[in-house]
Amino acid sequence: MLRAYSVLVYLFLYGPIALIVLFSFNSGLSAADFQGFSLKWYAKVAGNSLMLDALRTSFTVAFSSAALATIMGTMAALALQRVKGPVRVIFDGLTYIAIMVPGIVIGIATLIALVTTFEAANTILAQIWPGDAPPQLHMGYGSIIAAHTLFSMALVIVIVRARMAGMDRSLIEASMDLYADPWATFRQVTLPQLAPAIMAGFLLCFTFSFDDFVIAFFVAGPLNTLPIYVFSSIRRGVTPEINAIGTAIMMFSLVMLFSAQVLLRRASAPRKA
């Protein structure tokens, strides 16, 4: 009975996804009436310039925020290993707050903080700028990337620190004993051991940013990311084109997730000497 129930749960989990994939190949116009196999919706998606712009924006944002978050998060994790006391407590607290506060609150808080700051900065710039057209600060790539980097960085700190906790300290000590300077030890011992966790962190950050709607919705300004584009298309009505976009997005996240899993598995597997 337990087995039958579990099968039902898997059907529940995968049925809706399967339905989206199936109907993305529907040759009919209607979203919910399967008429035959066709790739025409994919062709239509490939020619949709609004969608392609959104896709490009999402890629830029996801890549930049993941790269920034991975670098800063790894740096913080390396440093936190060496500090104790209040600094560590504060960083731990901030990391958990960044992960725990709902995206919607982060989005709104960032929006009003940036709008207020930009307004003040633009007023000052207008006064001190020698030319006629002072530069204006506004929402856009910078604000989305910065906001996504916050959450992603916290994620990287958690992942890399978990990996450090399971790391073999004796190798570092051996390297020191053999008179390698700290930088050589880091480059030749610490970094290779951390690399899979860092890569996995990058991929997870990329996936998060690529998928995020709520934070981007507030801080994107005039830009459309892919989730924002999909959200507004759904509002206009359900079409087979959305099924095709959805299928493509899911396939892409699966590839990213799978790569992250492989890397993390390699990271947690015992290393052979």
Binding site: I17, P227, I234, V238, G246, S253
Partner: peptide, 16 residues
């Protein structure tokens, strides 16, 4: 796996 695929699309599936 479903948890890490697009939240938006999974919710959209239920509109469908």
């Amino acid at each position: 796996v479903p948890f890490w695929t697009s939240f938006l699309i999974r919710t959209y599936a239920w509109i469908f």
